[in-house]
Amino acid sequence: MEVRTIKVFTTVDNINLHTQVVDMSMTYGQQFGPTYLDGADVTKIKPHNSHEGKTFYVLPNDDTLRVEAFEYYHTTDPSFLGRYMSALNHTKKWKYPQVNGLTSIKWADNNCYLATALLTLQQIELKFNPPALQDAYYRARAGEAANFCALILAYCNKTVGELGDVRETMSYLFQHANLDSCKRVLNVVCKTCGQQQTTLKGVEAVMYMGTLSYEQFKKGVQIPCTCGKQATKYLVQQESPFVMMSAPPAQYELKHGTFTCASEYTGNYQCGHYKHITSKETLYCIDGALLTKSSEYKGPITDVFYKENSYTTTIK
């Protein structure tokens, strides 16, 4: 009895394709271990004539594949690729409408935090270190965002349907971005203890939790000093293409032309909904596939993004 075979390709990165001759009487799992086709788990399936010449994702289970996976995804987590594939199996079914010149995501599976993050990423200057993220990001900007969303979920250790947080998501993504040249110098002034300067680099240099107003941050924000008295913390120097200011959701007025974009969060910790506000020729609110415009805006804002380049204080 002759062994019926077909020729397929296996890959971990969709760049390096490895030619395989597979036995049609055995499952993919018996031949390769966990195997995925377009995100779908085909591990328990036997090869079919229609699979001839198709590319299958496999887990990096030998040295060659491990090197290829690390170079593309910059992670050695053995569960990463499987999590990416199972997320992709959902995100490829989502709709990605162009809204006001940006790629958004039609609401499904509690994905409003991903839509808000995706919209924000198209408006701030950011370059990702893992080629996987950078490639998928370019495709997302062009309207094909399924891979990018699935990668975000995998890097953030999230599953489809789980509630997510924009600030946490951005923080994970910033860790995989090139923020080497970003720098922030802060000064804390206390009447009792004097003053202390701190220099922050990388992710810490672009994120701040405690106030939404970048102007206020430049002037000074009140913080408790270690001595128990009130101290003032203010920005001395900022070198970065953008800054992200966050605070627990509270009524906040966004003035046209003073910011790049913002995240609105309605609801409580267990259950809520994100919308995205962007400042173009007027203010726009993007909620999944829905767009509304207004000249002014007041609502429960939790993150505001500002364009920056270089700032030095005039406070002496």
Rank of each mutant, 00 (worst) to 15 (best):
L186G: 04
S86T: 12
Q222K: 13
E281T: 03
T282W: 07
F80Y: 03
T211W: 01
P97M: 07
A108G: 04
Q230V: 14
I6F: 14
R83N: 08
D135L: 09
Q195M: 14
K106G: 14
R4I: 14
P60F: 12
G299H: 00
G29W: 05
P224V: 15
A205W: 07
A142W: 10
W107N: 02
L290Y: 13
G210P: 00
E308V: 10
V160C: 09
Y269W: 12
V12N: 11
G164Q: 05
H51F: 02
Y72A: 12
L81P: 07
Y172R: 14
E215A: 07
T159G: 11
Q251G: 00
C182S: 05
T211S: 08
N100E: 14
A289E: 15
C225V: 01
Y172N: 13
N14L: 10
C182W: 01
S294W: 15
G210L: 02
G33Q: 06
V12F: 08
C261K: 03
V22D: 01
S279I: 00
L81F: 12
G33D: 05
V58D: 05
V243C: 06
N129L: 06
E239M: 07
D23K: 12
F174M: 09
K44I: 15
T266W: 04
C193G: 08
T314H: 15
Y28Q: 09
E168A: 06
K280W: 04
K229T: 08
A205F: 02
G210Q: 02
G101E: 11
Y208E: 04
S86A: 14
T11L: 06
F217K: 01
A177V: 06
S171H: 15
K218M: 02
Q237Y: 14
Q98Y: 05
H256K: 11
T159W: 08
V243E: 01
L37N: 13
T75Q: 11
V243W: 00
M85F: 03
Q230M: 15
Q134V: 09
L118K: 00
A108F: 03
T91V: 10
F128D: 00
I286V: 04
C271T: 13
T19W: 11
A142Q: 13
A132W: 04
D287L: 00
A140D: 02
M209N: 14
C271K: 14
I105P: 08
A140E: 00
P131T: 05
C182P: 00
Y252M: 03
N89T: 14
S86C: 10
I286P: 03
I277T: 01
C227L: 02
H48C: 11
A231L: 03
P78M: 08
Y155M: 01
A140C: 10
S181F: 10
V185T: 11
V160H: 07
F80G: 02
F32M: 13
R167I: 03
Q216S: 10
D303V: 02
F56V: 10
